[in-house]
Computed example of a mutant assay.
Amino acid sequence: MKVAVILPCYNEELTIGKVIDDFRKELPEATIYVYDNNSKDRTMEVAKQHGAIVKKEFRQGKGNVVCSMFRDIEADIYVMADGDDTYPAEFVHNLIEPIKTGEADMVIGDRHTNGTYSKENKRAFHNFGNHFVKSLINKLFKASLSDIMSGYRVFNRKFVKNMPVLSTGFEIETEMSIHALDKNFLIKEIPIEYRDRPEGSYSKLNTFSDGIKVLKTVFWLFKDFKPLVFFTFVALCLFIVGLIVGVPVILEFIDAHYIKKVPSAILSGSLMILSTLSLSCGFILDTIVKQHKQNYAMFLNRYEG
């Protein structure tokens, strides 16, 4: 099987050389690709010196890099990691094995099960955000994943070539997890160790802005993948508010056979109409989504990797 190690990079001059050497030691038969995302340091030069195939992605954002990697690179097994030396290369054999045996289409390097992520990562809000997003997605998709946002993953060709990458930034891992859950791909998690960046290297993640992007991604993907649940919730909220506004109007009419609170009556009626429309949209979109899933399943059946 042809193995490709794909490393998206942005200003990783200090670490990328070691990451390339570590993966070459573990996978001497693999081809190592480094996609530079407009780095302002010597990332490209160092990567070339260490023997990687270096390409440049001019569209800023990790999602854009992953999109180009998935479309450009031809392989049977794809190993994706970061260029910051936070994911130990020695775990790659454990991650590849389920792909080779057909047990999984995507294998996730789970940073949380053995507790090393919470110990090594000094940013408390990152830990909180990871657990919050994980709990939310697991609840929405009735899953039991431990690490939704890990950047250490291994894929087979079928997953890579049939993954529509829509995210442009660091929310790409969340999108891949949701896509795999929704399209019923086989997912397996393998516990790994996580280590913080070495001294002198700094993270490009912004806890709040990137956290908001991830939550927005979850919100919109929830709407797209689970429209009936989403619009039923919206309809229920509108119905409750309309009921709260409308009950005094109904009681007034029962008591006096006359309505003085005309604005409240209009508002309540409008909210009830919007609630009905929201529920109708949910049913219509749910039918469309189910049809899309059927078409996607038929496409996968015809796919030849």
Results as ranks from 00 to 15, higher is better:
residue 10 Y to S: 05
residue 18 K to Y: 10
residue 20 I to E: 04
residue 22 D to W: 03
residue 26 E to N: 03
residue 32 I to N: 02
residue 37 N to T: 10
residue 38 N to W: 08
residue 45 E to N: 11
residue 46 V to Q: 10
residue 47 A to D: 08
residue 64 N to D: 03
residue 68 S to G: 00
residue 68 S to I: 10
residue 74 E to W: 02
residue 76 D to E: 11
residue 77 I to Q: 10
residue 84 D to G: 00
residue 85 D to H: 12
residue 93 H to M: 01
residue 102 G to H: 09
residue 104 A to V: 06
residue 113 T to C: 06
residue 120 E to R: 04
residue 121 N to A: 03
residue 137 I to D: 02
residue 137 I to M: 09
residue 139 K to D: 12
residue 143 A to N: 00
residue 144 S to R: 10
residue 146 S to I: 02
residue 151 G to F: 04
residue 160 V to H: 00
residue 176 M to F: 14
residue 179 H to A: 02
residue 181 L to P: 04
residue 183 K to A: 12
residue 189 E to Q: 13
residue 198 P to L: 02
residue 198 P to G: 05
residue 201 S to W: 08
residue 201 S to R: 10
residue 204 K to T: 13
residue 206 N to A: 08
residue 208 F to H: 11
residue 214 V to P: 00
residue 223 K to T: 09
residue 227 P to T: 09
residue 239 F to Q: 05
residue 239 F to T: 14
residue 240 I to V: 15
residue 249 V to N: 03
residue 268 S to W: 04
residue 271 L to H: 09
residue 271 L to F: 10
residue 279 L to A: 12
residue 280 S to K: 11
residue 283 F to L: 14
residue 283 F to D: 01
residue 283 F to T: 12
residue 287 T to E: 12
residue 298 M to R: 14
residue 301 N to P: 00
residue 303 Y to S: 14
residue 305 G to I: 07
